[in-house]
Nucleic acid binder design. Structure first.
Lengths: 248, 248
DNA sequence: CAAACTTATCGTAAATCTTACGCTAACTAT
DNA sequence: ATAGTTAGCGTAAGATTTACGATAAGTTTG
């Protein structure tokens, strides 16, 4: 029993985006130091934590580096502290890549939600990163597939319990877009009439004067998320419930 | 910009217990290495992470050391990674206490729920630890008050969304005990008739053949928590909801 | 251009759930 | 015996959820 030595602390980020149809995650190709090794090619963006930096700040730094965005929704997933989570070739790669001599790397997973607009897509692809449909991902470098799975589980829960969905949509969106997003992430079919009713009843959506254009059906109105109304509502009511709601 | 050196990773645990009236937390008195310093006396149980140990395992180790219990409900609260969260005298104390030379200590907070039975109380008090009513705590060593506050916030949420309350009660309990616990932790008054209805409707409680004895009113029946029924229910239904429940 | 197709948006009624609260039962303490 | 307490049952009003009908407003097709 001894206190550990040469351990490193890193952050890895699962960055999610929604293209209107499916949920995507940002992956980067890692540079091999030994091209003949059988290491997986794609990984989540991540970095070692720096001196005088909190973990959330490290995640923000990684996010800005990867997407060019400063204000993104960020949430911690979990800590991945299995002593063997990176070892062998993977550990060598990390030490080479970062110029460290770590025997162990504990990482903190974060997930981020970004709006997949042209600017962001241009920035990330210019950096050689890729937006990959989440369902199609089978393996990733190190234990990043595990981190991604944990991120997805948490995202589903968060989507049901707080208005994080809006982080994935443009500022102005239609109710149908919101519905499609919920359906895609949760993997469920949603009745559009009841969805609309429930969402509008919340009072968190403000209609704009704009409507869709050029769609092959009745054009839908655009809405914006009213964060102030949400925060106010949280303060007062809203106890979400195991065995349903408590509103005693 | 350099990778950090001499950092340590620790775990700290907020261990909660319920004595039938109020929520309590386990605090330990720390040994001073310089009795004249003005450091706070009480702290949460914690430890440095060992080589070849995951963080959850470190928390389990701390818990067993503090309470003698092996199987306790454990949940991660958050990571406390402010570079200045321990510094000056506090940092000196830590290095002295653990025989380290760290410049920085990142800690992972956990909260634990234990049944405050005679055996556990005897064990902890024999160790010099104390069960302190949560509302009465004003300050703690280092940033442990902050960790405790974060633990409480999370506990409230968890109590509403999953059946963690049973971890704080004896195996056999009355519905009134459960109600008192919810009321105490959430700080709300609960109508006993509706509470009973809601709890029983969940199907997660099994009646036993035993009843209270020697109470100055109609003796209540004892129930046990049916974990299997709960797990089964989770698998099927139960999407808890922002803007209420989704059951489409 | 009319018909077909698609989604938006409004409604409504049945079913289910929540909430407030009355009432009797069964104990102990006085 | 009486008062005081909580257990435990029930019920009715009010909200919410759910399933689904119907019309509106565009584009695409023939």
């Amino acid at each position: 029993m001894s206190i550990q030595m040469n351990q490193s602390l890193s952050v890895d980020c699962a960055v999610f985006g929604f293209d209107g149809r499916t949920l995507k995650v940002l992956l980067i190709e890692r540079r091999y130091y030994a091209p003949d090794t059988q290491l997986d090619r794609l990984k989540l963006p991540g970095a070692m934590i720096l001196e005088n930096e909190t973990l959330p700040n490290a995640a923000i730094r990684v996010l800005e580096e990867a997407t060019g965005l400063r204000k993104v929704y960020l949430k911690q997933i979990d800590i991945f502290s299995d002593p063997a989570r990176v070892s062998g070739e993977e550990l060598k790669w990390i030490n080479r890549h970062h110029g460290t001599h770590s025997e162990r790397v504990v990482t903190v997973g974060y997930y981020a939600l970004v709006k997949l607009d042209d600017r962001t897509v241009a920035y990330t692809t210019a950096k050689g990163a890729q937006w990959v449909a989440v369902e199609s991902i089978v393996r990733l470098a190190m234990d990043h597939k595990q981190i991604l799975s944990a991120a997805l589980t948490l995202l589903c829960r968060e989507m049901c319990q707080s208005p994080v969905a809006f982080e994935l949509l443009p500022r102005k969106f239609t109710i149908r877009q919101l519905q499609t997003l919920y359906g895609a992430v949760l993997g469920i079919e949603i009745d559009n009439r009841n969805f609309r009713k429930k969402i509008l009843a919340s009072g968190f959506l403000c209609p704009t004067s704009e409507h869709e254009q050029g769609v092959a059906h009745k054009p839908a109105q655009y809405y914006v998320f009213n964060r102030a109304a949400y925060k106010k509502a949280v303060k007062e009511k809203l106890r979400l419930g195991f065995i349903d709601n408590w509103r005693y």
